[in-house]
Design a protein around this nucleic acid. Sequence first.
DNA 1: CCGTGAAATACTACATGTGAAACTTTACAT
DNA 2: ATGTAAAGTTTCACATGTAGTATTTCACGG
Lengths: 241, 241
Amino acid sequence: MSDSPRVVNRPAPESPLLPLEQHDLTEQTYQVLKERILHRQLKPGARVSVDDIAQQLRVSRTPVTAALKRLAIEGLVEIIPRRGTFVSSLTARDVEELFVVRAVIELYAARCILRDGKTDEFLRRIDGPMAKMRQASETDEYTDYPAFMEGDRDFHLALVDLTGNSRLAVVYAELNVHIQVSRAHYLNTVEDAMQALREHEAVIAAFRSRDPQAVEEALELHISNVKDRIVELLSGHGGRL
Amino acid sequence: MSDSPRVVNRPAPESPLLPLEQHDLTEQTYQVLKERILHRQLKPGARVSVDDIAQQLRVSRTPVTAALKRLAIEGLVEIIPRRGTFVSSLTARDVEELFVVRAVIELYAARCILRDGKTDEFLRRIDGPMAKMRQASETDEYTDYPAFMEGDRDFHLALVDLTGNSRLAVVYAELNVHIQVSRAHYLNTVEDAMQALREHEAVIAAFRSRDPQAVEEALELHISNVKDRIVELLSGHGGRL
DNA sequence: CCGTGAAATACTACATGTGAAACTTTACAT
DNA sequence: ATGTAAAGTTTCACATGTAGTATTTCACGG
């Protein structure tokens, strides 16, 4: 999560020489660009020139091209032949569809957890993320949005992970990058953060009660609210995120 | 779905000359290999040598490598660094997980269709696929498995398409390649085909009755049965598909 | 017979150069 | 002013060559 990803062997006194970080330039380029997009340092619609990136990172075009192709498959950038590569932007419709799929998966995961008696494990798992969110939002004067987003993400990730279904986890991870972009877009006011936090608490309370109906409702409401908030913001922005 | 995917301009009488297929070697290589894997001409575990393929297709390693990387992302092949590339094989667990996700998606889609009053549209859409399946299985003496598989696939694809959610469709399409491989594996006896056909009929009957409960049960039963059959065959095969 | 180490082999990742295709700009003519 | 044509620029896809690294093979010594 650093600005410069090239840090490898920090001068750690008397540590037994960490193996050199594998420098797979394609992988590194991919990570750097993904970071930038997820944190909105590269904004939707922005041009991403192969030569430009290659020069900045001091590598040839090959790994940059490969990284961009991978990002294109994931949908984070759009490669328009003979035009260039641009950071993808989400339309209101994209968000609607995205959050429907998200809800389908998370609701299934929640049912699984209750059915398989993994509620306690879940409650334990989200302890850290919830603490992080609280801390990030309770800091006076300013909200640590990146930390909040991380906590938010990990909360929902825990849900899916606990199904133990790795295939589902992969599918969700693919969606998640876009959800993360959305989060970065809408998490701008303290109020939104507090609202999300309250809704998470509601989900937790429902889990504590072991009432499947209540859990489904609380979770669906939360996802739906976030979606509505994003779609609302999107309308103001001329429809593109 | 032809053996040779290079066919471009079939002699279609008095049609206005289709534009020549863009010869994107990476894309073509990808398609050829995917075809081969989906039809089990390249069997799970088989080695896929870059140089080998490159020579056969008369292209350089570059497009072959790129195609393989894409197939690896989709999970159809496995690239083991410094070892080589191999066609992926599914374990019983993989199939279990795969079919859980499949069920989650298709059941949601079915609920959508009933909720949005698209039942008639669905019934119309699956008319063709069902006919194809019947014809493929009713042919005396032998069953046209490729055609049957296509019909089977299109039946389930119709379900998902009718949600109108393109993101969901993408997710499902990614799963579908593996489902298709599974189908190719288990669809070997007339009995299995007939069984699948009967179960489809049951789903259709449930849709006709407009009873959500019945639809869910019929669909879930079908998916579960197919899964069980595959897992059963997998056990006989030493656990790998 | 087994373990050890070195050479041979194979594969990956990358850089670079080339040709082709499409968009952009400019200049010109109507 | 508008439309058109040609030049210029950008970008893409591919081939080829190279270096580095992991695995395998094989020979040798225990």
